[in-house]
Design a protein around this nucleic acid. Sequence first.
DNA 1: AATGTAAATTGAAATGATTACAAAAATAAG
DNA 2: CTTATTTTTGTAATCATTTCAATTTACATT
Lengths: 139, 139
Amino acid sequence: MEQQQISAYLLKSGIRPLQKRVKIMSYLVSKRNHPTVDMIYSDLIHEINGLSKTTIYNVLNLFVQSGVTLALNIEGNEVRYDADTSTHGHFKCKICSGVIDFRIRKEELPNPMLEGFRIDEHHYYLKGVCSFCVNKIEA
Amino acid sequence: MEQQQISAYLLKSGIRPLQKRVKIMSYLVSKRNHPTVDMIYSDLIHEINGLSKTTIYNVLNLFVQSGVTLALNIEGNEVRYDADTSTHGHFKCKICSGVIDFRIRKEELPNPMLEGFRIDEHHYYLKGVCSFCVNKIEA
DNA sequence: AATGTAAATTGAAATGATTACAAAAATAAG
DNA sequence: CTTATTTTTGTAATCATTTCAATTTACATT
Ligand SMILES: [Mn+2]
Ligand SMILES: [Mn+2]
Ligand SMILES: [Zn+2]
Ligand SMILES: [Zn+2]
């Protein structure tokens, strides 16, 4: 996606499309790799002169608050970020640590009997070993 | 549940049923409140003489490894522990921070097309506002 | 283009959760 | 009882994230 489109998208979402914000969103959208803050930092430090890790925290927190990014808590200490805010599920591989998407329609997710509750977010996480690592183990 | 039963259960699961382990499992089983390490610590410190937080980490890690306890990563940094290892879902209230169970049969959970993957764990988390807090807000 | 103001970014220090580790205590075996 | 093994403890180390004051940037107005 073009930086122009990213800017327009951020603006529409009530976020001033400053350079670093556009670069970070651009990274999330193009990579689609559910990165941690550290992954984003070590990738963008080369590209953006004098980037600080604090800025990444700031920007991501803003993105999450504004609803343009999801914070995924699949495992323990690590938070992963996802610019795809549509309904979908996540699989995390125990071996290679990769997180991959799978399509799920909202209607497929069970709707539990929670009388009087207001439900804002659905998260469906699977954990196991991805096909690539399954092959490695068997070999 | 009796401490006797807890001991037998741990033993059957390959865990030596030492005093503190039994007490901690007993707490999890009876309270069913999905506590954090700190909640367990502040509750049991009165009951168990000279209990260390490190021991709680040790014991819980052992429980999780042995499969008698689930570690839930519903939100950010906090890990919550659950002695109910059967298939069920969790709802977390943004207001009161409580985590409650809801029944879900394994067959109700969607089975995504993940060719060649080995799936070990299913986690279904909902977030929102519980009925009690919804009432508080309206009032 | 220069100026002023508000917002964003930075780096260092603070915080909070978890782990590492070595010493002390408890448990099991002989 | 003695000894070997396992567990627990307390402290220090580590790691992720937040706080905060100082600096820089963006941008509207002269
Ligand atoms: Mn995703
Ligand atoms: Mn539960
Ligand atoms: Zn893998
Ligand atoms: Zn509530």
